[in-house]
Design a binder for these strands. Structure first.
Lengths: 362, 362
DNA sequence: TCGATAAGTCGAACCGGTTCGACAGGTTGT
DNA sequence: ACAACCTGTCGAACCGGTTCGACTTATCGA
């Protein structure tokens, strides 16, 4: 393999001069620079990443810690990854992706070994066990998701409180008096997914202030369980006229559930979700929703991280905690309330005739 | 940062001895080994990845070239990535993820710079422009997807011919005489997605042999276009009794389409898809389908790649082209044919009353 | 005209590992 | 008793870049 010594020899200069000609870190005569570049081109020279990392203590790689947890909805996760990957590439960084379930040791390994210049953490929990390791690491870190303690890292998240308020306000303004909020599974909360609480508490407060009854439940995050959950819920609260979804799986399952019950939105039920526009398109979801902006959050996190890596902001500059304001995207699934006719349990579910696989029963 | 010299000094040995004690590449006395390991533990020593890569010409990183193309269905892609990432981690490798639209230059950069020990290519086209670069690279490569020319790389793919045959046979056996096959968008084919042809041609041959009429069309891969496509299709072929889907977006959109037309499977229409079980669960799809096994393919590709990297198979060992046999997962969406009653166009689509957003019209 | 400054180049050292050859000391075989 | 061998350790060289200090030559100001 051709190295910088070969290039220097071909150009008739010292190795150091060749280096300066390529990197521009010192003045080099036009003539020499051109000769070096020419030689590099002809020989097909590419700097060795390991050697460069060793010499500069910079790898131009950003670590991305994502966890594909069984109770997280994978397609929603993908959008954060895309946002991070695209932005990193634009800024000249490669992505080292870790999907290791053991986030602690993965993080420790990639930071201690200096494989990465910085780290983005997805799926951050209230008391995330990766944070102590990240703070102890020499590299900067950016989070997507709000932990309890934000010291030493830059944090980006959707404003879930505002989201909760906006969802309730929207339906209250239309005249609804009884709503159901379906959150993520309780297990997500136990693991520290505080955003579930943040939205739910704000929704409760707003509901109380507006004199609206709000039933809150945790839904499953897998099929077909969430479908069953939704049916049970609609049975349990026959007089509720609005449905709020802070649960991607529930949103994805709702069309089928409403179909089975011969209901439609907003004629029988008003629906407001909390998911991204991309998600809505992918799943063809016709519900008005709070935009969760995963691409923007990923982009913001990487931008700030790169600023720290490149010392455009120093360690003494304050760490930021930035919330994206939720936007309500109106897809026409809300309207003033109507009394929902209760479907007779025996006629629901209305599956197609013929044999049905075990896998699909609900 | 603590380096191997610090460890050696603390243990009272030479740097080389410390290295041998950690790597085990030469015999070291039990006592010294223990002293070195102890020192390393106490000092919190982790080898510098760049330095090690420079010295050994091995990075323990695998490059993963994925492209999030607008006409590919992203959630389907994610499963390949997960399969690759999980397997790599199990085998002691990290993943360098490139989602660069310019696959050629991304591949050239990561291979020439020696950042990676090997590469997995997803989304491989018939005449993939990344292949010449991969063949010229010093690292081995494994593909998920079948290109026209397989020399110099290990190739893994679903047996799409057999899949096409199996889909048609299954419905022909049940007595169907007129079927519709919805493939990926024509654009995917133009870009070189040969698997579309492979399945379609095999389906056509089988249909001809069985005396079954087969209408083949290319569907969109985005919402809501694909929904419109499906409606048009069902209008155009009112006597068709079976629907074959080699298009994930179409599968994801079908429940809503059938709902709008007041049809259900298999009572009015038999349906066979081609997607993974994971995909079926995520989208709650109740259709019998050919398992596309993305996790298995990703796993196989990484396994073989690592074998090459670690010289368990040499450059002279033959390169493999391995097809995964398609399995039909019966979810009960197929039955003997019934005459489908034509829905009156004016009553279809049956949207909910009330305002409808522009975004959601079809 | 002379010293100060800047531009351009070079050699050497360095980053932090691994690996080769040499060698001391102990064991074995004859 | 001596060669042959094995074990365990060390010092030095090497991987391929970058960067520092020093040096030469040209340029400028006083």
């Amino acid at each position: 393999m051709v190295n910088i010594g070969d290039v220097a020899r071909a150009a008739g200069v010292a190795r150091s001069t060749a280096s300066y000609a390529m990197t521009g870190k010192r003045a080099v005569s036009d003539e020499v620079r051109e000769r070096v570049r020419q030689a590099a081109r002809e020989l097909g020279y590419t700097p060795n990443a390991g050697a460069r990392a060793l010499a500069t203590s910079r790898s131009n790689v950003i670590g991305l810690l994502a966890q594909f947890l069984p109770d997280e909805f994978a397609p929603a996760m993908l959008q954060y990854i895309q946002g991070v990957a695209d932005t990193a590439r634009d800024l000249g960084y490669d992505i080292l992706l870790s999907s290791d379930a053991d986030g602690q040791s993965a993080l420790k390994r990639i930071t201690d070994s200096r494989m990465v210049d910085g780290v983005v953490l997805l799926n951050v929990a209230e008391d995330d066990d990766r944070l102590p390791i990240l703070r102890a690491a020499p590299q900067p870190g950016a989070l997507v998701g709000l932990p309890g303690d934000c010291t030493g890292v830059d944090v980006f998240d959707l404003d879930f409180e505002e989201a909760g308020r906006a969802m309730v306000e929207h339906l209250a303004d239309l005249g609804h008096r009884e709503l159901i909020l379906v959150s993520q599974p309780e297990h997500v909360i136990e693991r520290g997914g505080a955003y579930v609480w943040r939205l739910q508490n704000a929704a409760k407060e707003t509901a109380a202030a507006r004199g609206v009854a709000l039933h809150t439940v945790f839904g499953s995050s897998t099929q077909p369980d969430i479908g069953r959950d939704l049916h049970a819920l609609l049975d349990a609260h026959p007089t509720a006229t609005g449905l709020l979804l802070n649960n991607e799986a529930a949103a994805a399952a709702l069309p089928t559930v409403l179909h089975d019950r011969h209901l439609s939105a907003p004629a029988d039920l008003s629906v407001v979700g909390r998911y991204s526009d991309e998600f809505a398109r992918t799943f063809s979801l016709p519900y008005t929703s709070i935009e969760s902006a995963p691409d923007r959050l990923g982009r913001m996190a990487v931008r700030q991280l790169v600023r720290r890596i490149e010392k455009q902001v120093g360690e003494n500059d304050p760490y930021v905690v930035r919330f994206v304001a939720p936007e309500l995207v109106d897809r026409g699934s809300t309207a003033p309330p109507t009394t929902r006719q209760t479907t007779v349990p025996s006629t629901r579910p209305t599956p197609s005739a013929g044999k049905r696989s075990r896998r699909n029963n609900r």
